[in-house]
Design a protein around this nucleic acid. Structure first.
Lengths: 200, 200, 200, 200
DNA sequence: CATGAATGAGCATTCATTCAT
DNA sequence: CATGAATGAATGCTCATTCAT
């Protein structure tokens, strides 16, 4: 009854961006599971069909929203330490805090996509892996080792994998409640373990 | 039109078990995502409705299939090392191999349930957490420490969390291809890192 | 696993009668709507299939149960007045009380069968209309008229229809709550109206 | 595979109204018993899912169709007499004819809802009890009594209950064939009975 | 470009009935 | 006779996608 409504732009924002933002918020609060295009359109206050004027399908919108979500999240997470500055211990703790916060939002958001490779593939297409935290952690460790603040024979990839895994794992407890440890270790103890090992 | 057949037993196996096994196999190959009761019934070669003669609903069947899947998988994974025997290094590698293999099957199977707490709740109900690998790893580390083969001040919970996380994380690469490390570390390097740390 | 269980007879009662009685009770408490053969069998503590050894189908069982229900109900309702004895007013009140009580149980029981002629047809087949209250009311009125206790020109069929209708209607309020009168009239006022009319 | 067609308007009629009308007709001919959403959609010549673009669920459609059905029916029933005009006898006959015609359509339509309170509740929500015939009959009788055309002591609620009951009862014969009187009384005789009573 | 009604395959679940044991 | 597992058509409902306006 009223095509071409003046709502084309809302606050100077394209419908494209409005939809991405709306989907982003919905993903943030409820994950991708059970998220319908109708619900997104309704939440954005637009018609069901608009989506298909700006995205090829639901998957593309979701992929864009996910990407934006990760970016927004990372941007809010603050700075990562610089190699050579501060204490090793403090820096690793900072990295760990960063990673934990990051995974806390990412895991629920991406969890619903296991077994639905389509959105993931789209996500991979449009995202560039450059800035991902893991790579920054590895780079950081590598620099510290170059500076002599880590053992020259230390295997930074393994250390990073172990720290990233810990973040992932810590957060899984929220998703699969009964699988987590009864008594989750503190980030401090994890840093100590990674720094000094458990061998006598 | 033909509700008989009374194939109550197929090869001496109850329909209950046939359905669980069928679902188990389907979960093993395609995960729980998009798994429909019709598909299970079809794959089992039985009528749609049988399911409800043996399970209260889809969720219960899925929970049972998942439980059976975990059990079957664990059973095939072989023995875990005994504290005090063999080398620490070898034992940890064995644990890591066990954990990796376990997560390799568990992660895709459970992944589809993120955001769908119903099946997980059912699973938690019927499963006992007793035998889960994490607990056995912690117990193992505790014993080794008691035997003096680990540093008395070593924090076994942190070490375990870090190792479990690594397994989880390693496997996520298969689920979210683009998030993993380009160059995944070897289990050996992980064990070395956890044993000796990266500090100089 | 255990065919031919000794439960064939329970307290000397045939399974036929056990099923009828069970269905009767269930109809009494919840009506025929949503009444399943499984539920009946379960409540009777017998196998699903027994029903078909004693009745051609669900409809026949329901018809028998309904018949038994009406009979049981009527039997519990006490005596109806004899023409010529007592007062006219009291006798009509008694009839009305009888009718109200009868419809109170019959209406919910039969209500669910509207639009399902099958059971009703079965019911009609096996029931004999002889004893139904309406006929006894008509007979009573006819006798009173013959005795001169009613006006010779009074139309007993109309009077009976009006009284039966009132019973029916009174009870419908329980079934369709919002259609009934806000302020239902007393049986006494109904008797007075039918006896003396409303004309000046 | 062919989700278009965009027959938004069929003969200038919205799908909402088309569905209500279709359901209304189906209720008129076969009652609500066994009425499925698929059957309605098929009869309306539309897809299964349309219903849910216009109604929250089956119950709402049914409630609306029922309401429309009652309205249509009442509208076709003509005028009710005005107190003080014409003869009492004629006016009551007119009321009775109105009531009989009304119940003739209403009883089969609503009968299938006994024991299924959901649709009734929805119906009650959207309908206003104001215009229901019973209330108009009571009002009419009250006015006639005020005008002195009925006995000052006459109990109009009882008279109305008895007349409404008769209508209900007359029509039940169509629904439960074997319960009605073999020889149903004429409306005239009912009016005579209510006006003059059966006492000598 | 935006609209939103229409599509229809697909989903989980129910239940009267059968029949080998 | 009794058993109860198996049947499968049917039900109400969802939702990504299309396209005439």
């Amino acid at each position: 009854m009223s095509p071409r409504k003046a709502a084309a732009q809302r606050d100077g924002q394209s419908l494209h961006d409005l939809l991405v933002e709306t989907a982003e918020k919905m993903i943030a609060t409820h994950g991708t599971t059970g998220l319908t295009v109708r619900a997104i359109a309704r939440a954005a206050g637009v018609a069901d069909g608009v989506l298909y004027n700006h995205f090829s399908d639901k998957e593309e919108l979701l992929a864009r929203a996910l990407l934006e979500y990760v970016r927004t999240t990372e941007a809010e997470l603050g700075e990562l330490p610089v190699a050579g500055e501060g204490t090793l211990d403090g820096n690793l703790r900072r990295h760990l805090e960063f990673g934990l916060a990051l995974h806390r939002v990412i895991v629920p958001a991406f969890g619903g996509l296991v077994g639905r490779p389509a959105v993931l593939a789209r996500f991979a297409e449009i995202s560039e892996r450059s800035g991902y935290w893991r790579d920054r952690l590895v780079a950081y460790l590598r620099e510290e080792r170059a500076l002599g603040r880590l053992a020259p024979e230390s295997e930074v990839d393994a250390a990073a994998a172990v720290l990233v895994g810990f973040c992932h794992e810590s957060v899984m407890g929220a998703v699969f409640p009964h699988t987590g440890p009864l008594d989750p270790p503190s980030p401090e103890s994890v840093v100590r373990t990674v720094l000094h090992g458990i061998a006598p």
